[in-house]
């Protein structure tokens, strides 16, 4: 009994003694860190997603506080976070428009037929290694949802047509899905831009027409109104060079004549 009591007492006293010593040492060897780092870190989303290029929110906060990068370097936090940080640090930021990811493919299950039954791992990356995927179109979306898997913000879903749909409210433009897509079909664009060519196929017109009903076949009809090269066709694919063409009504009528509707506005197929 005596042993137990004295054991407890000894451990308690020793523990308290070392704790006291450490607390003195902590005060004496306190590292003066920039207090703004903590403040900035508090405002950042804290997802540690790495979209900014730093290993975590803490590292970005250090970089922002030391002035290495701008206050709006967090793509996830958006302009609100940027404003708050800028106010805190007393710096100006250039307002940048929020970006969202856009899928540049309309190869739905019905439009773009599959050439074979794929029974491997249900991943676009794995499927694309076998004969560039199981669709006739070697450029199109395979629909196995690698982008959905990497999204931390629940902004992507595969719809019943077999294509990923972007929730433009939830998308934070972190860019993880852009990297994940083996076909490079996802691109980041300002949220206000709705006019795109929804095809990435560089196949010749004949193959494109055969492979996918919604493909750009390079028929040049959309370029007819574009006098100043706002829209051109390169490598059998239409390319929008200049969004000024939206102002030109006559040119837009030609664009509207696209036989496969590969060029057009976002609202038509996505929210």
């Amino acid at each position: 009994m005596f042993n137990i009591a004295i054991s407890i007492l000894t451990m308690g006293i020793l523990g308290a003694f070392f704790a006291y010593g450490l607390s003195i040492a902590k005060n004496k060897f306190k590292v003066e860190e920039d207090p703004r780092i903590d403040q900035v870190e508090e405002v950042l989303p804290g997802a540690n997603c790495g979209a900014c290029g730093y290993p975590g929110c803490r590292a970005l906060a250090e970089a922002i506080a030391s002035g290495q990068v701008d206050a709006n370097s967090c793509p996830v936090g958006g302009s609100e976070t940027a404003q708050e940080i800028a106010q805190m640090l007393g710096v100006e930021i250039i307002e940048t428009e929020r970006q969202v990811v856009v899928l540049l493919c309309r190869g739905t299950e019905t439009a773009a037929q599959r050439k074979a039954e794929y029974r491997g791992i249900r991943q676009c990356y794995a499927a694309s290694l076998v004969q560039s995927g199981d669709k006739f179109c070697s450029y199109g979306c395979l629909g196995y949802g690698d982008c959905v898997d990497v999204c931390n913000f629940d902004a992507l879903h595969i719809d019943k047509e077999g294509l990923p749909v972007v929730d433009r409210e939830k998308c934070t433009a972190c860019g993880l899905c852009v990297k994940a897509c083996p076909k490079n079909l996802l691109e980041l664009h300002p949220v206000s831009r709705k006019f795109f060519v929804f095809c990435m196929s560089l196949d010749n017109p004949k193959s494109s027409r055969k492979n996918c009903k919604n493909a750009c076949t390079g028929c040049m009809i959309c370029t007819k109104g574009a006098q100043n090269g706002e829209i051109v066709v390169e490598n059998n694919l239409s390319l929008i060079n200049n969004l000024d063409i939206l102002e030109n009504e006559e040119a837009m009528q030609w664009v509207g004549k696209c036989p496969t509707k590969a060029i057009g506005f976002l609202e038509e197929n996505q929210n």
Partner: peptide, 19 residues
Amino acid sequence: VFILVIASLVQFVEMVIKK
């Protein structure tokens, strides 16, 4: 007790090196 001693010392060394 030995582990307690070692743990405290390491904490101390960590603080010193960080400083």
